[in-house]
Design a binder for these strands. Structure first.
Lengths: 213, 213
DNA sequence: CGGCATCCTCTTTGATACTG
DNA sequence: CAGTATCAAAGAGGATGCCG
């Protein structure tokens, strides 16, 4: 990107990550850790492959992304965030919080990848942190997601839960609305959600109060 | 901007404010409140006037910016943020915090407007909130800035202080480094900073601990 | 003047095809 | 798999023109 040529921290930050696709590439690396080129490409539907290659070069040059030659089991180069790149997490959370209101518009023709849910889910809290940890499986996109509570925090990762307290199956926008607390379970079931197991496990997940504004 | 076409809160946020210049327009409106077109244009050196007009249209359509026909004393239309637009403040602060490290590179040929300092300054705290409030005048860009502590918080606004505890005069990058605590006063004076008044007043301004990461 | 709209050139993006 | 090459379309940048 052309520099804005302004001696302002926001402008200088945008000189580095203000390019189209740049922050979404950071999102992918933040959510998935080390990624091969093809993993990134798959998690960024709509990007042109030459642009992905170009942005990775730029971000590497800016010290946001690092290329690593992975050892034999993988035997290819992978991309990961530098610590400088991980420092962009608050930017993505702020954008995600602000953009959350735009998720009420239905999914429409938008692409969806289930691991994208990990970002808003990590902003939830366990409303009963002293209770036993809960495990929820969410099946809603390209792959199932395991959601677990740990010390009041909530994390999501791809995978199939062994003994989940609840399993949630439905369209991404319905699942999202339930997790955001904007849709109660009965209404959600009317909109195609299927819930197996303990509804109370779902109810324990609450938006963190400080992440609202 | 073309939509990313992804059902993800970050992508949807960037559909609205990911365009080049969009977040800097929000920065201007956040820092200066209501603005005439020309004020915005002056605070965004480098932007093309047709782009500014176009972005303002887009942001108005997205509910981020509002046009107001100002009453007689001004007698022109002014732009301001909607509440939705003000909600972008955390995004700008996150970007500014991340970009702050890039401010160590000297100003070079970059343009500078002194009101841009208000954003990082508002992230400072008064390390001695129980002491008497302090007022500092900073003269470093196109116009002087009054910095005041109120209840442990620090605010900046354009203007000339009547009885400042200290006056800081120097190049933007030196002033910035001092405020960020990356340069002590003696070293800063070697780099052209002039300080009149009480050095202790400056020392009371400290980066807020939670805004570091 | 303040507040844009037009016109033109140059750069970036997007879509797809191709290669080691 | 991990990109590069090619090319058309969209967007940005810059100058200038118009209108109350």
């Amino acid at each position: 990107m052309r520099s804005y040529g302004q001696y302002c921290a926001v402008a200088r930050a945008l000189d580095v990550v203000g390019d189209r696709w740049a922050l979404l590439i950071v999102r992918e690396l933040l959510l998935r850790g080390s990624c091969r080129y093809t993993d990134l490409y798959g998690g960024l539907p709509g990007i042109a492959t030459n642009l992905l290659a170009g942005r990775l070069r730029d971000l590497e040059g800016a010290g946001v992304v690092r290329r690593v030659d992975a050892p034999p089991p993988v035997a290819t180069t992978v991309y990961e965030l530098t610590s400088r790149g991980s420092g962009l997490a608050p930017v993505l959370h702020a954008l995600g919080t602000w953009g959350g209101d735009l998720m009420a518009q239905p999914q429409g023709a938008d692409e969806f990848r289930s691991h994208w849910l990990a970002l808003p889910i990590s902003r939830l809290t366990d409303s009963t942190p002293d209770g036993p940890p809960v495990t929820i499986e969410i099946r809603t996109g390209d792959q199932p997601l395991i959601v677990e509570t740990v010390d009041g925090n909530v994390r999501a990762r791809p995978g199939i839960a062994e003994h989940p307290d609840a399993v949630l199956v439905g369209a991404p926008d319905v699942v999202m609305a339930v997790l955001r607390g904007h849709l109660d379970l009965t209404e959600a079931e009317r909109r195609g959600l299927r819930l197996d197991g303990d509804a109370a496990a779902i109810q324990r997940l609450r938006p963190a109060p400080w992440s609202e504004g």
